[in-house]
Simulated assay, not measured.
Amino acid sequence: MTDNPAQVVEQQAAPRRRRRWLRTLIVLTVMALLFGVPWWTLVMGGSAWPAGVVVAGTVLFAAGFVALPASMLLGHGRQRDWAAVAGDVLLGVAWVLFVWSVFGQLLGVALWAAGVADPARSRIVAVTTLVVGVAMLAWGHFEAMRVPRIRRLDVMLPRLGRGLDGLRVAVITDTHYGPIDRSRWSAAVVERVNGLDADIVCHVGDIADGTTDIRDAQAAPLASVRAAKARVYVTGNHEYFSEAQGWLDYMDRIGWDALHNRHITVERGGDRLVVAGIDDETAAGSGVRGHGADLDTALAGADPGLPVLLLAHQPKQVAHAVRAGVDLQLSGHTHGGQIWPFNFLVRLEQPVVQGLSRHGERTQLYTSRGTGFWGPPFRVFAPSEITLLTLRSGS
């Protein structure tokens, strides 16, 4: 124990410095692998490229190593859209080249076993890796920027009344309006949603990266979404990076029901369905006053005998849904992994990466792969989607 304030401050600061250095070390290690493995596969190894090729390739990878954190800090830290785009593209390129460089090394082992010697073996690996990597990036960019296809699915809810049989629920999520202006894309998404003639349209969070003021042009088409019964929205984790309450107010202003730990009731044919929404899992620790996922509050006053459709951004929030006896939870967040094989890393944190799953005796969870993309403008083996769920009555 000490009564010296300076010693107390120093004792508190030391662990923070250690954590900061540890985070820095982890980031540098990850970056060294992201850039180092492709550099070795494409430039060095046993390829014996001419000196000019080696120097140019080394300079290019070194520049990327420096530019990535700089552009990310300037772009996402200080809200410079041009820098954010540069950093996001560079991150996507580095990840794809890293993944396919690892496979390239496996190809090299196979060629070695087949008796192919260097430099021919390493040059085959380098060229193959580069061609496949560029093809994946081109295809992945097309997949990210196109208007999503419709994914249709029937979901049986045993407690759903006969009058609600065939209720159509359209789901969009993770639109991530951001540094790339996608106003026309947003309008095209709304047009496609309106063509579904849905009874309920849901936006399940991560609406944008940035405030309502700077992303209004991209979000504005949402005002034109049509639904026979309800348009509902909940926050995702990215709203808490900018202005979560601002987005809730914005969606209220354009005529959506912002389900900030509350519910509405939809009725058809004499039967009713509770549609509830809760804040994102990260809301409680965000520092935004009055925010935090609270399913008890969201369902307060609801008839316990009615089926419940819950909007919750992250699939792992299904644990709360199971305890509350929710019939169907709609989530996003995972993007289906977005750039393969990142889906395996997502699975370490979330119970489901995409699709329909069952949890407990009653609760089902549908996890969308997302309508837009975050960060790198690429989607590889994880196509975007607009989901149309048709609810079926058990009777």
Rank of each mutant, 00 (worst) to 15 (best):
135 A>V: 10
275 V>A: 08
240 Y>L: 13
31 M>E: 04
59 V>T: 08
239 E>V: 15
279 D>Q: 14
57 G>V: 15
382 A>Y: 01
9 V>T: 10
380 V>H: 00
392 R>D: 10
226 R>V: 12
294 D>V: 13
115 G>Y: 09
32 A>E: 02
279 D>A: 15
150 I>R: 07
287 G>T: 15
236 G>I: 01
141 H>W: 08
316 K>D: 04
282 T>L: 10
48 A>R: 14
64 G>R: 05
6 A>K: 14
378 F>T: 01
271 D>T: 14
203 H>P: 00
69 P>A: 09
290 G>I: 14
337 G>I: 10
171 V>P: 00
135 A>K: 02
293 A>H: 03
381 F>V: 06
372 G>T: 00
77 G>W: 12
246 G>H: 10
212 T>E: 08
120 A>L: 15
372 G>C: 03
352 V>M: 09
265 T>Y: 04
354 Q>F: 11
217 A>G: 04
23 R>D: 03
305 G>R: 09
141 H>N: 14
388 L>H: 05
390 T>L: 04
91 L>S: 03
145 M>L: 14
294 D>N: 15
65 F>T: 09
265 T>R: 13
134 V>G: 01
188 A>G: 02
394 G>N: 09
33 L>N: 04
346 V>I: 13
107 L>E: 01
10 E>H: 09
161 G>F: 09
360 G>N: 05
249 D>H: 13
205 G>W: 02
276 A>Q: 09
310 L>H: 08
211 T>C: 11
189 V>K: 00
366 Y>N: 01
326 V>S: 07
264 I>C: 06
3 D>I: 08
309 L>M: 07
295 L>F: 11
206 D>L: 05
304 P>T: 14
219 A>Q: 04
129 T>I: 10
156 M>I: 10
322 V>A: 12
344 F>L: 09
347 R>D: 05
43 V>L: 15
123 R>N: 13
167 L>R: 02
108 G>T: 00
392 R>K: 10
176 H>L: 07
362 R>Q: 06
362 R>P: 06
4 N>V: 08
366 Y>W: 03
97 L>F: 15
366 Y>G: 01
169 V>N: 01
